[in-house]
């Protein structure tokens, strides 16, 4: 009698493992739910490098921005950006501002070459600034 009970529970355990492995193989196929690594350059009008950032799949879009060193930059967030993502920060350049509307801009001049991170104030949305 005992033997049969042990076999039953062993069978259930094997069944659980098989179910998890088979369904896991099927449902855990990789794929990104959000976009990363898209690149934009600031549009330069002779005085200021202008950048407009939007939002896609819960991150800044584009989230890789190429800029030139020593030339003033103006960054604005379009109307797709919402919540804490409108509180825009670039720690290395001491920039932090809440851009309430799409017309509001952050202006600063990148003084050093390198790769820096920009983010919302809570660090939930991030991106990269490449200063060349």
């Amino acid at each position: 009698m005992n033997e049969i009970e042990i076999k039953k529970s062993t069978l259930y355990i094997i069944g659980i493992i098989a179910l998890v492995l088979i369904s896991g193989f099927f449902f855990l196929k990789s794929g990104d739910g959000f976009v990363i690594g898209n690149l934009i350059g600031g549009s330069f009008n002779g005085e200021v490098q202008k950048v407009v950032i939007g939002m896609k799949n819960y991150n800044y879009y584009p989230n890789t921005i190429q800029l030139k060193v020593g030339i003033p930059v103006s960054i604005s967030l379009d109307k797709s950006v919402s919540g804490c993502f409108r509180d825009f920060t670039i720690r290395e350049f001491g920039v932090r501002e809440y851009l309430r509307t799409p017309q509001d801009t952050i202006e600063f001049t990148p003084t050093k070459k390198g790769t820096y991170t920009f983010a919302c104030s809570m660090g939930m949305g991030t991106g990269t600034l490449i200063i060349e």
Binding site: S23, F26, L28, K29, S30, G33
Partner: peptide
């Protein structure tokens, strides 16, 4: 599957 499979699983 890439979007929902992991979370439903």
């Amino acid at each position: 599957i890439p979007k929902y499979g992991f979370y439903l699983f």
